[in-house]
Nucleic acid binder design. Structure first.
Lengths: 195, 195
DNA sequence: ATTCATACCACACATCTGTGTGGTATGTCA
DNA sequence: TGACATACCACACAGATGTGTGGTATGAAT
């Protein structure tokens, strides 16, 4: 039930166009592969739909939607037992869906972390944290907040009914959430890039 | 030369649709704002183009392109000075280029980190490290290696001409690089996902 | 031998879509 | 006062676009 080489090529073309921001029309796909009939393209689209790689929105132009299956994925290796090559299929624990993580349906931004106040949680200076903008969060969430006109990363914690912004470093102090300390968003991912 | 409230609304609608993968047609925009004429929408598109927020591709359906000014990519915020809104343009330090980081030209895989041997370098248990497969690396690189049929993350370090695999945790021992310990790849990124 | 998926083609057709050409009304700035 | 931007409307039209209905040929599976 996998894709043929040709179907793979067509899917790759669609993916490229979708990532560029404008899904192709049937005739643009036909032109790319020198098909002289729109019917040929429809055969491909139907095949890709049947195999679960795309969704088709009827009567709408350029309305080809990629499913998760068709998105860019990188394998995640879990435990690697003795004697087996590292990249063997058996080691694949899951797939990391890049498009899904960075899909911009929500208001996201990165914040470069200053200082070492979250070092106990493995968030180091100069790390990037991906932040979903939202005005509130739950206890134990890692949040980006503004405290007296300074933006920092902290842990939101409920202590006997009162909310506090706590660092993960004992050299810094715990601050109550009040009118001078406001939540900007929730940290959903931390990323550190090496050279 | 900034946008009016109405123009801002129209741009936000276009941005939302573009992010969802399908830019709107002129008539879809008209429907959203209950305009009874396509000409009205064109006035808005012309205004947005003139002010540098969108590009219009002639004769193509749905061909509205957002410029950088309309912020298509995810911004990286650096220092946020007092009194300025967090998401203000002045705070944008750079833009995060997803395609560059995850370009699949090289053989990449993620490894889920087991254990706390790299906790001193901010790599925690269950973190994902993005690994570029390669048989050798430079001193101080963080590498994935196979030691006696076990795969772990270590720091490669040159000590007086000899190479060692060192943990970032004093509870673990330093291991010389030899025929029983082999480099699998280099860690280029560490990612931690919160719920 | 028959069914099915693949891999193409030709052509017609309704409607979607961008574009063009007009119009009215309001407010701002010089 | 005149020029200009904003904020709408009406309607026509060519061409873009998805869809429908046919067709041929090849190869694998039953």
């Amino acid at each position: 039930m996998d894709l043929t080489d040709k179907q793979q090529e067509v899917l790759m073309f669609i993916r490229k166009k979708v990532r560029e921001g404008l899904p192709p029309t049937i005739r643009e796909i036909a032109a790319e592969f020198s098909f002289s009939s729109t019917g040929t393209v429809r055969d491909y689209l139907k095949a890709l739909f049947r195999k679960g790689y795309i969704l088709l929105n009827e009567k709408k132009s350029r309305a080809i939607e990629l499913t998760e299956k068709a998105m860019l994925t990188i394998p995640i290796l879990g435990s690697v037992p003795a004697g087996v090559p590292v990249l063997a299929v058996e080691n694949v624990e899951d797939y990391f869906n890049v498009d899904k993580l960075f899909s911009q349906k929500e208001e996201l931004f990165f914040l470069r972390v200053r200082g070492d106040s979250m070092i106990g949680a493995g968030i180091m200076p100069d790390d990037l944290v991906l932040v979903k903008k939202q005005p509130c969060a739950q206890s134990e969430d890692i949040v980006v907040c503004r405290i007296d006109d300074e933006v920092t990363v902290k842990i939101l914690r409920n202590r006997e009914g009162r909310l506090f912004l706590e660092p993960a470093n004992k050299n810094y102090s715990i601050i109550p959430l009040n009118e001078n300390s406001q939540i900007v968003g929730k940290v959903i991912t931390a990323i550190r890039r090496y050279v």
